[in-house]
Design a protein around this nucleic acid. Structure first.
Lengths: 231, 231
DNA sequence: AAGCCCCAGCTTGCATGGAAGCTGGGGCCG
DNA sequence: CGGCCCCAGCTTCCATGCAAGCTGGGGCTT
């Protein structure tokens, strides 16, 4: 047995890490609803650890815009106004269109397998829609967009995209059942993939933008009609 | 004297905050050069505080990609490879072109004062260049780009832009004196402002993109010639 | 002489205690 | 009866102590 002195690559997660993941999941799944206010002590108790790792996890969550800590008062889960959703969509458009263009600018033998991956996910969306399985549809839709940025060859871009999607996850889930059947999405996705496959960067950019703008146009009125500061 | 019970808005900065700012400044100004490895204890001593606030500040810096903490080994200042710089420029292009387009899409009476502000900064750049004051030129150039995203009406976009610019600040400073006299920049900036003033979103987008791509094309070979992992 | 092993020292991870500050409500004063 | 004040309780902030783990070098074995 070789003595591994340098770099144990698969170390067990620290308490900070698990607190971070647990809190993020709780926020995403609405267990901690927006506006929820709690103390680190209380959260630490729930997670079965001391205050320190919870405190440090909350610092990270604050950095990502999911919570805000009010000094000496507690930590609150950030609520999203329609204004926030406008900002978020603008950032999503900026990052995602860039990713689509970057992929389209790759050499053909790099683009092809990526286009195939995207097509596969898109097929899964279509199948879910045929089964009337909206949850599976949303999951596959998320995977499509996540794949798009993950394959852009730009880890920083993918990371920024991830945090902005985390911020808006709740809002998308909320409106999932409210909006009309999303049949256009699959078609628009196909257009994006086609542009990528042909190496048409400008077109990929434009199609990705149009897709997101339409989705946003559908989402914002819904949110506005639901009440201002609610999610 | 009214008793301000709610929300003291101008509270003195916490130790965590000052540690964060001090460390960020030290990294920006190359006091802690990339690859520098130190212990939290040592930094805490230098800043005259305990390990705790330093530890928490480092968590934030790690979240922003400026440092990496190696468990039980210390914290190192991240070095940037040419590959990293490519990623960074791609993100800058994505965010900045979006900002330019957003401003150009505003109503005319909102665009005009912004264009005037941008023109003023641009004039300062030109003046600095006439004086051969490269440092002042770089400072004004940074202000131009920062202003562009700050006036986009999207705080999230501006924040993301700020962190990515923090990551790449050192590299820009390093190459400042190495590259040819930046006379084209002022002209290209004028083009961006003109497109904004006319409300031509597509053109503002394209000009902002071309400007950054040219700058990148100038920067990358310089960095490559300097040595791979150095900054 | 070369290679392995083990240990001393230094590092962060985490727990805990004290301090400072904000909040809300009960009591006091007008 | 109304409004102000003050304080008890809860919160985060920060310091510090202990534990676990990584590193590098000195000494031992072969």
């Amino acid at each position: 047995m070789i003595r591994m002195r340098h770099a144990a690559e698969a170390t067990r997660p620290s308490l900070v890490e698990s607190a971070y993941e647990a809190l993020k999941a709780a926020i995403r799944n609405n267990v901690f609803a927006p506006g929820y206010q709690g103390s680190e002590q209380e959260i630490a108790l729930q997670l079965g650890m001391s205050r320190t790792p919870v405190h440090e996890a909350i610092i990270r969550l604050q950095e990502e815009g999911l919570v805000r800590v009010l000094p000496r008062r507690g930590v609150v889960v950030c609520a999203l106004s329609p204004e926030d959703m406008r900002e978020i969509y603008e950032v999503i458009v900026a990052l995602e269109t860039a990713a689509a263009a970057l992929i389209a600018e790759m050499p053909a033998d790099a683009r092809a397998p990526i286009a195939a991956e995207l097509d596969a996910v898109n097929a899964a969306m279509e199948a879910a829609l045929a089964r009337d399985d909206l949850v599976a549809w949303a999951e596959a839709d998320g995977r499509f967009h996540q794949l798009l940025v993950a394959r852009s060859g730009n880890a920083r871009l993918a990371r920024l995209f991830g945090t902005i999607m985390d911020q808006s996850h709740r809002a998308r889930m909320l409106t999932l059942r409210l909006r009309p059947r999303p049949t256009v999405s699959v078609e628009e996705h196909r257009g994006i993939v086609a542009a990528i496959r042909h190496g048409a960067a400008e077109e990929a950019h434009a199609r990705a933008k149009a897709h997101r703008l339409r989705a946003r146009q559908q989402l914002l009125p819904l949110l506005a009609s639901l009440g201002m500061r609610h999610l």
